[in-house]
Structures are given as C-alpha cells and as structure tokens.
C-alpha cells in the first residue's frame, strides 16, 4: 500500500468500469426508439425510409451520454490525468 501509483491505477480502473454503467441509459433509450420505429413501419410501411432515417438520427442523439461515459472511461484507461499528480 505504500505505492501511491498502484492505488491511483486501481481506482482509475474501477472508475472506468463505473463510468460505463452509463451504457444502461442509451441501451434502453435506443431499444425504445427501435421498437417505436418498428411499430410505425408496421402502421405505415410506405414511409419506412423516412422512419428509418429519423430513427438512426434519434439513436445517435440518444447515444450521446453513453459516448461521453465511454470517452471518460477511455481517458481513465489510456490517458490517465491523475497519474501525473502522484509523480
């Protein structure tokens, strides 16, 4: 326990894992989005092109929070800003 670097590295790994819990939200949201799109296509098959396009854009926007957490996790794993603080 006298190596501060090991402690920081371990905590960063836990932090990266915790950050990815945010993957839950976009998963649920995109599933909802896809389900509604299927319903809409079932009701109105001739508009499937426009519906699919809108769905993909909606998915991408719903994905934002998940992507932010991914960026944080990548940062903690590969470009750790805390490591330089313990020297």
């Amino acid at each position: 326990m006298d190596d501060p670097k090991a402690f920081v590295l371990g905590c960063s790994a836990i932090g990266a894992g915790c950050a990815m819990i945010a993957g839950l939200g976009p998963g649920i949201g995109e599933g909802f989005c896809g389900g509604k799109a299927v319903e809409a296509i079932g009701r109105q098959p001739e508009a499937s092109g426009a519906i699919t396009r809108t769905m993909i854009i909606g998915d991408a926007i719903a994905e934002s929070t998940g992507i932010y957490s991914l960026v944080i996790a990548l940062l903690l794993m590969f470009a750790n800003p805390f490591l330089s603080k313990v020297g």
Partner: peptide
C-alpha cells in the same frame, strides 16, 4: 463539442 465527441467516441471506441 457534442457532435465532436460523438464522432470521436464512436470511432475511437470501435478502434479499441
């Protein structure tokens, strides 16, 4: 910033 991070996160995540 949001559109930047979206593109970067997706491609970088796929890369990893």
């Amino acid at each position: 910033v949001s559109i930047t991070l979206r593109q970067f996160g997706n491609i970088m995540g796929g890369c990893v």
